[in-house]
Structures are given as C-alpha cells and as structure tokens.
Design a protein around this nucleic acid. Sequence first.
DNA 1: TGCAAGG
DNA 2: CCTTGCAGTAATTTC
DNA 3: GAAATT
Length: 357
Amino acid sequence: MDARRRDASPGVSWPARGQEPPRVRARAAHRHGCDPVVPAAKSAVRIGGRDVTLSNQDKVLWPAEGYTKGDLVKYYRSVAEWLLPHLRDRPLTLQRYPDGIDGPSFFEKQKPCFTPEWIATVKADASYSNGASKKIEYLLCNDEATLVWCANLASIVLHIWYSRAQSLDSPDFAFFDLDPFDCTVKTLATVALELRDTLEELGLHPLIKTSGGSGLHVVVPLRPLYDYDTVKAFGEIIARQIAHVRPKETTLERSIARRNKGTVYLDYVQVGRGKTMVPTFGVRARAGAPVSTPLDWSDVQALARKRASDPEVEFARFTMKNTPARLKREGDLWAGKHWREAKLEPAIKKAKRLWNQ
DNA sequence: TGCAAGG
DNA sequence: CCTTGCAGTAATTTC
DNA sequence: GAAATT
Ligand SMILES: [Mn+2]
Ligand SMILES: [Mn+2]
C-alpha cells in the first residue's frame, strides 16, 4: 500500500508520485556583501569529528508554526545530552516526513544505503515468532553526529526498541502504554495512578512520561534478565488487573469500533520484540511540535484532580520550542536515582499470590 | 529523502 | 554548477 | 487480509 495518502490529513490531497512540492535551492554564492544572507540549500557541520552534510534547512515541516528542518536539527542537537542516553545501543526506527507533518510519512528500519560508515549499527532478526529469518541492520544513535544526520533526513519521530544491542532479546524496562480513547485527563491520570499503586504494591517503582501525543507511558526499569515473552506476559497480568479494578475507566479492546468512549486503552500488545516506542524527548509530528516529557507522579496526582480537559491539549505544553530550556534548567526528571533496575520474579510471585487462585 | 545522470 | 528524474522506504499482533 | 499500533 502506498503510504502517500495514509498519513496526510483527512481531506487534504497530497500530490501524487513525482508531483511533490518543488525543492527550493537558495543560493549563498554570488550575492552582494550587503544582501541578506539566504540560507544555503546545503551546508556542512562538524560534530565530534564527524562531518555531517545538511540539506534544505529552511524547508518548513510544521506549516502552522513555520518550524523548519533546521529547527528540528537544532532541537535534536540541543537536547542530545539528555536524549542520547535513552537511545544508546537501541535499534532505531526512523519515521520520516520529507514534506512535513501534513505530508505522507514512512518508517525506515533498515539502514539506508547512503549511511556514513561511522554510524553504528546492529543486525537483528526481523521476526521472532514465525520461522522467517530476515536480517535487518538497524541504526544505533549513539552520538550527536548520528542524531543530527537522522534529523536531517526529516526524521521527525524516532522509535526505539525496549532492549539494547548487548542483550537484544532482553528489555531493560517494562512498558505500559496508556492510550486515552476520548477520555479526560482526569480519567487518564486516575488510571495511571492506579497502575502506579499496583506496581508499587508489587515492590516496583514505575516512572511516567507523556507520549508526546495524548497518552502516557509508564516504565519500570529492569535488569535485562528477561525475554520479551516474559515481560509481555507480566504486562498483560498487570493490564488485566487494572481493567478488573477499573472496569469503567479502562478497556483492553484492540478494535476501536468496540472500545467504549471515555476509557483508557491498556495497550499491553505494544510490548514485544520488534515493537517500538517514542523515546523521552522525542518529537511528534503533530501541531505545535509536542515532545515526550517525563512527569513527576505529583504532576499526575494534580491532573487527576483537574476538571475535564483533553489530554492532548494538556500535554501540548511540552514542545520542541520550550524543551531545551526546561532541560537546561531542570535536567531529565528520570535521571540518577530514579532509574533503579528491578528484578521481576518477586513481583510476578507476589502478583500471583495476591490475585490468583 | 539522496543521488546519478545530463546539460 | 545546476536541473531533472528516479528509486525506495516496517513489522507485529489481533480480528 | 484488514485494522491498529509504534
Ligand atoms: Mn500510546
Ligand atoms: Mn498503544
């Protein structure tokens, strides 16, 4: 299927193949000294000893805000110090928007053929459950130069595995994906707190962030000792328990048509080998250029007391524009002592004792 | 989007 | 140096 | 084979 129409906004027809918007080539040469400096179509930067060629830095990717590809590159560069630790050694999927957020996008897992040789990669089996054994050579974004190179490809959204190259089959966190289905922030936050209390009861210490969209991501750092099946099974046990305790506010129904409005979809299916999530400080291809941002649990408690409001609107306050300053001011809320790696066996044992038989 | 080909 | 045209880009799980 | 998800 052609992705060309899939991601374009409803009602907006995007030009067919070969009819994309003309590429502007502004020229920096042959201008008078007093003329305004027009950004060159191509430029080069040296980052950590690597030369990265940048192209079309003035191309607008967010039409409403006027944010350009140059702004995206500048953003990822400025948050590299805090973002890179989250990306390190994780197979990376790019979601590229060459014509901006209103145009079509495509995912890119296999390293492009023109990838510089200095970018780190890892080969991984494409499929795990079925027999097929196609190898994909994934990019690893381990330094600022690689991050900038990726951003220059109009990779607005980054997607990462839950495991790292050293232990590809063992996630180093359990992931709980909370997707609001037409529900309020109050409901979403209430469910998130129920999840937190449940995990704490099992001796685990979850962290929480916005997804950058309308949802929340809850994460329990783990020692990479368990395979994807185990971590997914654990996630399912928890999801079913939350759904049991909060039947009115949650759903486990994957089919949108069959979901009840006003609920939170507990998406435990989104855990597995080859599945991905948007990393902390990753940008989303949405209006306002929102950014996935760590929250304090006290923030979530405040949200649970708030009167009805739209999660997407609420979380839209964390953006590509204001995140660099926040990071320089406050750093990564998850950093340091917050990242305690847990073991899963005691939690599974306790969960069975509390809820089973 | 990058890039090869052609002018 | 510049313009034009072309190739190519995901995978998992559920229903 | 389509839908939903990232
Ligand atoms: Mn989600
Ligand atoms: Mn989801």
